[in-house]
């Protein structure tokens, strides 16, 4: 039997006015797979992720996540988005709420949990990211690494089927990166399907199942981390890998 992909994106194009940002991207992701997306700035990595949960409306193509046609107008998009967690470079925590409040908001408003249920689930999620004791802190009282872990808790509390990470550690001081990668690694161990845009090549090497290289709105090359990093077949991939390894 052919294994069903949990993420099935086909022929995605995205135009911003005259700008053709995605030029027919196909991306299939298996359940429990960790796919790493790399590529130069402006190549369309963020836009691709944002098309998967329809934060950005693809100009054409199809996106099916966990059997739900994300682009069908009849799909309850708010309900579908619960299954797709997203973590942003800039954390985007709600500054007027505590860590607990950040995590409970969608549990109560979207998942329809009572306050008590939501609090319990949120505390469990905060515990998973190692911040059980920070539940009552506001984002302003947390370090960048802690804020990003709260943002991860906010997503996983909804028990998503897929997690999207858009440069989750790029805004962090180097000494705080490890704590976030640690949480991502433990999430991976629970079998979470993850699509990660990041420049953390060390993490990619030992955690990713597959590395996807994007350039100029297209997937140029993909394969196991070792193959992409040691033996890239395309000139553009080789140039990009060489460039980041010099840093």
């Amino acid at each position: 039997m052919v294994q069903k992909h949990i993420v099935e994106a086909r022929g995605i194009h995205k135009h911003f006015g005259p700008l053709h940002v995605l030029k027919g991207v196909d991306l299939q992701v298996d359940e429990r797979e960790l796919v790493f997306v790399i590529g130069p700035s402006g190549s369309g990595k963020s836009t691709l992720l944002r098309c998967l949960n329809r934060l950005e409306e693809p100009s054409s193509g199809s996106v099916v996540v966990d059997g739900i046609d994300m682009l069908d107008p009849r799909t309850d998009i708010n309900h579908a988005r619960q299954r797709i967690g997203m973590v942003f470079q800039s954390f985007n925590l709600y500054p007027h709420m505590t860590a607990l409040g950040n995590v409970t908001l969608a549990l109560r408003k979207v998942a329809g949990k009572s306050r008590a249920e939501a609090d319990a689930l949120a505390r469990k999620a905060l515990e998973r990211v190692g911040l059980a004791d920070r539940a009552d802190h506001t984002p302003g009282q947390l370090s960048g690494g802690q804020q990003q872990r709260v943002a991860i808790a906010r997503s996983i509390a909804l028990e998503p089927r897929v997690m999207l990470f858009d440069e989750p550690t790029s805004a962090l001081d180097p000494e705080l990166v490890g704590s976030v990668l640690e949480v991502m690694r433990s999430l991976r161990e629970t079998g979470m399907t993850m699509i990660v845009v990041s420049h953390e090549m060390g993490f990619a090497r030992n955690a990713a199942d597959r590395v996807v290289f994007m350039d100029d709105g297209l997937i140029v090359e993909q394969g196991p981390p070792a193959a992409i990093f040691e033996n890239p077949t395309h000139e553009r991939t080789r140039a990009f890998i060489g460039q980041i390894q010099r840093h």
């Binding site: 988005r81 997203m86 800039s90 908001l105 969608a106 408003k109 997503s155």
Partner: peptide
């Protein structure tokens, strides 16, 4: 208000 606030909220399914 930073656009990221909208995105974070909408991505968790809030209308």
């Amino acid at each position: 208000i930073h656009h990221g606030q909208w995105e974070a909220s909408r991505s968790t399914g809030l209308s």
